[in-house]
């Protein structure tokens, strides 16, 4: 296996993506065959770059919120005083995951109005579960001898959490965040049904005017973002796992 081929492909994908966002007109000839005469091949009701950045911003805000709540919750229920809340918090987070984002939007719009806010709520709820479950797994599968040594050397509960438990669980927590981000990137598109500024706008415009080129470019940008961000997170996880001495044994 040549190890550099995947890296080359990712780099090429990144270059194409940036080129497309900065200067979409270059790609006009490629998409032209997909549209009927006179119809535009490149989205023309706003800047693709701006929409992409707004899309990423929505995902970033929702995921940050989900990380704070899910990690805090997982830490609380793995402490001795919070253990009895474990089943309750598990079912709460599961409800967040099973509730369809579309339904969340429908319920949130009357309260929060149209725009970004209902989308943030839907993405936040949808992103909780992977982060919560992974943090829980990371914190409950630590090597017992290491935990015993941490207690035996006189660390307080707080010192154990920040100096030993979280650093060792970090690769698993990051995997949960990665999953959550990728799900949110795709799900954010439906936010445009309630007038949130995301790449979903391009796809919806394409569906309304029967313009396959619009649908394709909206979908491909989201797909490319997901692949690149997924790979970025995986790389960070590998570095952290190596630092935590976890990868070396496999």
């Amino acid at each position: 296996m040549r190890a550099w081929i995947p890296h080359l492909l990712r780099a090429a994908l990144l270059v194409v993506l940036i080129a497309f966002l900065v200067s979409p007109s270059w790609f006009d000839p490629l998409l032209k065959p997909l549209v009927q005469d006179n119809a535009p091949a490149i989205y023309n009701q706003g800047s693709l770059l701006t929409l992409t950045l707004l899309h990423l911003r929505t995902v970033a805000i929702a995921t940050t919120g989900a990380i704070i709540v899910a990690v805090t919750l997982a830490i609380l229920v793995t402490r001795s005083f919070g253990a009895e809340f474990l089943p309750l918090s598990r079912s709460l987070v599961n409800v967040g995951q099973t509730f369809p984002p579309v339904a969340v939007l429908a319920l949130a719009v009357p309260i929060l109005g149209f725009g970004e806010k209902p989308t943030l709520v839907a993405l936040f709820l949808y992103g909780l579960l992977p982060i919560f479950e992974n943090t829980l797994t990371g914190l409950t599968t630590l090597p017992p001898s290491v935990m015993e040594a941490a207690r035996g050397s006189g660390m307080t509960d707080r010192q154990r959490l920040f100096k030993v438990e979280l650093p060792l669980a970090m690769p698993v927590i990051l995997a949960g965040i990665r999953l959550s981000v990728v799900i949110s990137l795709a799900t954010a598109t439906i936010g445009s049904t309630v007038a949130a500024k995301t790449l979903g706008e391009v796809i919806i415009a394409g569906l309304q005017s029967n313009n396959i080129a619009f649908v394709l470019q909206g979908g491909l940008i989201v797909g490319a973002l997901a692949v690149l961000i997924y790979d970025g997170f995986s790389a960070i996880e590998r570095v952290m796992a190596r630092r935590a001495g976890l990868a070396a044994r496999s």
Binding site: S145, G154, P167, G245
Partner: peptide, 17 residues
């Protein structure tokens, strides 16, 4: 108290990170 008493266990329990 535990900071004043040494403690060594089977399987060493070293912090891997």
């Amino acid at each position: 108290l535990r900071r004043r008493i040494g403690y060594a266990i089977q399987g060493h329990g070293l912090f891997p990170h």
